[in-house]
Design a protein around this nucleic acid. Structure first.
Ligand SMILES: Nc1ccn([C@H]2C[C@H](O)[C@@H](COP(=O)(O)OP(=O)(O)OP(=O)(O)O)O2)c(=O)n1
Ligand SMILES: [Mg+2]
Ligand SMILES: [Mg+2]
Length: 1149
DNA sequence: TAAGGTGGCTCCTACG
DNA sequence: CGTAGGAGCCAC
């Protein structure tokens, strides 16, 4: 029962690593099931040779189960572990780690564009490339993979890794294009140079002939691509990154997706599937060398000379009819923007007809092709290319958004400040220099210092001619347009007389004050001023400093003031401080001074603008003049409750004081009630001394929230974005050197009554909010784990991507990295080793034992369809039966077990660190080690699910119904709430299970075989928890009317089984297999393929039961052979041989 | 155009 | 009963 216990321990979600193989799968010999794509033989010793790589957790993470077990097996077979690891610590991990990469198949990321309709799912079979040192350059690789088929040269890959580990400035390498829009080319020059330096280095390490051209090309600058908008489809050579660079460096515009309708002028593709052929029929499609040659020659080449090889249907090519004319036209366009060309228009209209007919053939990854002729508007769009709309579909969205988000800046600054002062406090407490303290213990002087209308003041420094004191000035994005929905970040005190407030929309502010002057943000300047500000504060050496914000801090200055003359001294002190700040920063600050934080804050408010206020006596009198909403922590929600309670709209603190404690506690809860009670009497004991209790000030959670610009069409885009978020979280975790074991995904879904376009431009509008969290099993900072989890949670929530308006990832249960090592050890040994002995009694696998005799490596698996007839189960060996029934009972999933031999004693000889690493990893995967019979051999066991995804979640036994919470983004006191539309009557209790991947009509028209594949594909998009064949079918039917699905009609637990196909390369989904095949094929052009790989592949194909997949594979190879022939490429004889064999076989079928 | 983030605390309640 | 997930609220 220990297993089921373990799983139900994690009610929300757990993950298990799927490792399914069919029983009759014959190629189970030791290493052979891992096809070696990279020619580097993964021989028996490859693990041993790289033992030091164990010092990096990511290495283990990257292994698939079998590899992990092999490693463990290997380690446990050696008696000389101790001596082998003598120098364990001396080895530098990054170098050896990199070497180990070539053992693995190439990384696969879901890609946005491919030439076929299959989409790769990310998985844990990826190499651990970006794990431990996620340089931005590696991100670049990821990005590239996202947008094109994974580059297939493992050698380049590895060198990138090598380089990255050496090159600390790798960030800049990527920055040169990823931050292009954000940086607006300021650093372009420098970054390009760095890129070239890097590239030179790379070329030293290898002989890349075919890229020589590109290298020199990258130094070229011109405007030849001006007004051209380039889109890259699928795998190209040179890769998408290079093309991106070439295009941008030469005046063009590069887009990552086709959704910017009508913008794209050229599509670059290596080859086209028939589908893409149809889809792109109205574009100029050409080969990548068109770009290269154009740059090389300094002028646009005739694009039609670079027509793309069509994959399948012979010469039925891209018939643009009069190619010459078109060509002329395109040349013309470089010089002027004139644009009406009858030929084109006619042509396009013709195509429109055809397009209609074949529209159902779309794979729906892209927007429908926009076939109308370019309008002047479009041209403007192209011309203004940098200022194009960037929403969440844009690959650089996060970067750009963050760079412009004031709130993001505020949050980041605050975190940095808190961190900084926490460190300072920690260091100080070490030194612990007790201060001379002459005042009595109760004596306390707290001051609260805050700049007056900080952003406005600071930005105004950039406008020396502006009369800031008399003119209404504010800071916001965009111009002064009376329709603007831009937020006012900060407004000066002139504005406030008009009733303008921070956070108000510009257009409502303009209504209040038509002469309003808007200034731009200047974040670096704010930082700079803040730095000076804090330096001053540090300089006065107070008892403690508590950073509240970039422009604001609390100080305890008790020991700087003589108790006996505190009024005068504090007065002088504050005046001096204010003056100093004003002198050094040119910005006016105000100071509130009192004996606790609450009163200091209230005094500050009173002191503004540009003054100091002291409050020591007659506190109640003072409070009676204060409105309750000025109390810290008392916002609109509490205020309105108070209004309800008291019955008047203006409530001052005196009114609040009249409420009894009990009443307040009942209304607001114990703590809040008490706080209000105390606050109304000026009582507050908030501690601001970090060094007193540093733990209290430690970071407890990390999150990323994006509720602006979230506009998606497909689940794939959402997935990519979630990975981006996960990467950001990863970076934050890494910076703090922390790990997390809990992740929460929160999404905002457009409320039913909300308009598709909310009042605020690209805002989230009125939304329902859903959140769901999940335990990760082990502490981690691996973005793949985080990302996969997030994707999984997204599916579990089930929001239609089109309705998505906000996404947030929160991680909590943070733990310092170095603490993890200590903590991991004990529970593993205790729980897993002990409880497993019970396991053994239950399901000591007879079959496995038998196998262990029969085979050197024993991989047993029982594959039972979930709805398998119970009589079938009855016939099974009792141990199997029990195990299966238990698992069935547990999570409705079939069971698979793997057993291997391991000598636990030998394993125990390993260095502790390594043991822990492996144990942790096994634990994470729910593989248990049994200390075993006679203590000699051990037994691994793993729970599997029927789901085809590599990494699967174990479902919660009972699924809570999702009840959306109405989300009204921070209703401000003024009219412009986040949702200024009509209020939502109640949260929409509709199920949002639709993921609109397929049009049902499309589906119906497909041949059955293909449909099956697609349905299986679709399965991937469902949460593991909720996946069910029947549900999918339901969803397909409902997909056109998602919002009307009745929740009650969908039983989340209703899951039908799917028979497990056999696996290849640990993969079994046709899409993945084909993907791998494609990569392999492409690889095989330039590199030697091992005979072994062919053998394994052949074995796989011959054992394949799925006829359709079989045919698809053959088709692929056929295509490949054909293309190669057309291009005069010499193919490996093996392919040709395989081909004829398969063709022969297929005749038989 | 526009960039409505983020972390901490508290409350409520379902779950064992 | 304690715990934890999830929602609410708030501040800058
Ligand atoms: N809704 C808000 C509130 C604040 N800020 C930014 C701009 C402010 O300048 C800065 C500091 O916030 P304050 O609350 O200190 O506000 P100001 O400094 O602008 O005005 P005050 O004079 O009231 O301090 O934070 C913002 O962008 N949006
Ligand atoms: Mg301020
Ligand atoms: Mg402030």
């Amino acid at each position: 029962m220990s297993q089921s216990k373990k799983i139900s321990d994690s009610p929300s979600s757990n993950v298990a690593h799927s490792f399914l193989k069919s029983n009759d799968d014959k190629f189970l010999d030791d290493n052979e099931d891992i096809m070696n794509l990279t020619q580097v033989n993964k021989n028996e010793n490859s693990f041993v040779g790289n033992l030091s790589q164990l010092s990096d957790r990511s290495f283990l993470t990257s292994l698939d189960d079998n590899e992990l077990l092999n490693l463990l097996n290997d380690l446990s077979q050696r008696k000389d572990n101790r001596s082998r690891f003598k120098n364990f610590h001396a080895v530098e991990p990054s170098q050896t780690l990199a070497k180990s990469y070539d053992v693995f198949p190439l990384s696969e990321e879901k890609k946005e564009s491919t030439q076929d309709e299959f989409i790769l799912q990310s998985s844990f079979t990826e190499p651990p490339s970006e794990n431990s040192t996620l340089g931005t350059f590696q991100l670049a690789q990821v990005h590239e993979q996202l947008n094109t088929q994974a580059n297939s040269n493992p050698q380049i890959r590895q060198r990138d890794q090598d380089l990255d580990s050496k090159d600390k400035d790798a960030d800049l390498l990527f920055g040169d294009y990823a931050t292009y829009f954000a940086q607006k080319g300021i650093n372009q020059q420098m970054q390009d140079e760095q890129y070239l330096a890097w590239d030179a280095k790379r070329r030293q390490l290898q002989d890349i002939e075919e890229e020589d051209d590109d290298d020199s090309l990258l130094t070229m600058r011109s405007e030849i691509f001006k007004h051209q908008v380039i889109y890259v489809n699928g795998f190209t050579k040179p890769g998408i990154t290079t093309i991106h660079k070439l295009v941008i460096l030469n005046g063009g515009k590069f887009v990552h997706h086709m959704s910017s309708k009508g913008q794209v002028t050229h599509i670059i593709a290596g080859r086209l599937t028939p589908k893409k052929h149809v889809e792109f029929r109205n574009y100029k499609v050409c080969r990548p060398d068109w770009i290269v040659d154009s740059v090389k020659n300094g002028k646009l080449m005739n694009w039609s000379d670079y027509s793309v090889i069509e994959v399948e249907y012979g010469q039925k090519r891209l018939n643009f009819g009069n190619e010459d004319k078109l060509e002329d036209r395109s040349e013309e366009r470089d010089d002027d923007d004139e644009e009406d060309d009858d030929v084109v228009v006619l042509e396009k209209e013709d195509k429109r007809e055809e397009n209609k007919e074949e529209n159902h053939d779309e794979d729906l990854i892209y927007d429908e092709v926009d076939i109308r002729p370019l309008t002047q508007e479009d041209v403007n769009l192209i011309t203004d290319n940098i200022d194009q709309v960037i929403d969440s579909k844009h690959p650089d969205f996060l970067k750009v958004f963050f760079s412009k988000s004031r709130l993001h800046h505020l949050s980041t600054w605050k975190q940095n400040l808190k961190f900084e002062f926490l460190q300072k406090a920690l260091n100080q407490s070490e030194k612990s220099i007790p201060k001379k303290y002459t005042n009595s213990k109760d004596f306390k002087i707290i001051i609260h210092v805050d700049f007056d209308c900080f952003f406005a003041t600071a930005s105004a420094l950039n406008y020396p001619d502006l009369d800031f004191r008399t003119k209404p000035v504010c800071v916001s994005h965009g111009g002064t347009k009376s329709s603007s929905t831009a937020d006012i970040s900060s407004c000066n005190y002139v504005c406030r007389k008009f009733g303008i407030k921070n956070g108000m929309w510009l257009r409502s502010a303009i209504k209040l004050c038509p002469d309003l002057i808007c200034l731009d943000y200047d974040f670096p300047k704010y930082e700079e001023i803040s730095k000076k500000f804090y330096d001053i504060l540090i300089g006065i050496n107070p008892d403690c400093i508590f950073p509240v914000s970039i422009d604001e801090a609390l100080l305890d200055i008790s020991s700087l003031i003589d108790e006996n003359d505190y009024i005068n001294q504090a007065k002088k002190f504050c005046e001096d401080l204010r003056t100093t700040i004003l002198q050094k920063t040119n910005c006016s600050a105000s100071i509130g001074c009192s004996y606790n934080v609450l009163l200091a804050k209230l005094s500050l408010k009173k002191a503004k603008p540009g003054g100091v206020f002291h409050l020591y006596d007659n506190v109640d009198e003072f409070l009676d003049t204060i409105s309750v909403e000025d109390l810290p922590g008392l916002g609109s929600a509490i205020k309105s409750k108070l209004v309800d309670e008291i019955g008047k709209t203006y409530i001052n603190v005196g009114d609040l004081r009249k409420l009894e404690l009990e009443k307040l506690e009942k209304l607001f809860g114990m703590k809040t009630g008490r706080k209000l009670f105390d606050y109304s009497r000026g009582v507050d004991s908030t501690n601001i001394d970090i060094s007193k209790n540093p733990k209290e000030f430690m970071r407890k959670s990390i999150s990323i929230d994006i509720n602006w610009g979230i506009r998606f069409d497909t689940i794939d885009q959402v997935d990519l974005f979630l990975y981006d978020l996960a990467k950001e979280i990863h970076i934050k975790l890494q910076k703090l050197s922390m790990l997390t074991s809990n992740l929460t995904l929160k999404i905002l879904q457009r409320a039913l009554n909300a308009t598709v376009d909310p009042p605020k431009y690209l805002g989230c509008g009125n939304c329902d909010s859903y959140s769901r969290s999940s335990r990760l099993g082990i502490p981690t900072d691996d973005y793949r784990i985080l990302g996969t989890e997030a994707r999984s949670l997204y599916r579990s929530i089930g929001c239609d991507p089109i309705e998505l308006r906000g996404i947030a990832i929160h991680v909590n249960k943070l733990i310092a990295k170095d603490e993890v090592v200590k903590q991991n050890q004990l529970p593993f040994a205790k729980i897993d080793f002990e409880t497993f002995s019970r396991n053994l009694e239950l399901d000591k696998p007879v079959a496995a034992t038998k196998q262990s005799i029969e085979e050197k490596v024993n991989v047993t698996q029982y594959e039972i369809p979930r709805d398998a007839d119970s009589s079938i189960i009855e016939q099974l060996p009792s141990t199997m039966k029990e195990s299966i029934l238990r698992q069935k009972n547990l999570n409705n999933q079939p069971v698979v077990e793997i057993s291997k031999e391991v000598n636990i004693e030998v394993f125990n000889e390993l260095p502790l660190e390594i043991q822990q690493e492996i144990k942790g990893e096994l634990r994470r995967r729910f593989i248990k080690i049994n200390s075993g019979i006679a203590g000699k051999s051990s037994h691994y066991q793993q729970i599997f699910t029927s789901n085809g995804t590599e990494f699967v979640k174990v479902s919660t036994p009972k699924k809570k119904k999702l009840s959306p919470k109405k989300f009204s983004p921070r209703k401000s006191p003024h009219k412009d709430g986040w949702n200024s539309g009509s209020p939502s009557p109640s949260p929409s209790h509709k199920k949002m299970l639709k993921i609109e991947k397929f049009d049902e009509n499309v589906l119906d028209e497909l041949p059955t075989s293909l449909r099956e594949n697609i349905i299986e594909e679709y399965k991937f998009y469902e949460s593991v928890n909720e996946t069910g064949y029947s549900k999918i079918k339901k969803n397909m039917k409902c997909s056109m009317k998602p919002l009307n699905i009745d929740t009650s009609s969908i039983d989340l637990e209703e899951c039908e089984p799917l028979i497990q196909p056999i696996k290849f390369q640990k993969l079994k989904r046709p899409k993945e297999i084909l993907q791998i095949l494609d990569r392999w094929l492409e690889n095989s052009v330039e590199v030697y393929l091992s005979e072994k790989d062919f053998r394994i592949f052949d074995k796989y194909v011959m054992n394949l039961q799925n006829k359709d997949l079989y045919l698809l594979i053959i088709e692929r190879i056929q295509q490949f052979v054909k293309i190669s022939k057309e291009n005069g490429v010499q193919l490996p004889l093996e392919w040709v041989a395989l081909m004829s064999k398969y063709l022969h076989e297929s005749d038989r079928l």
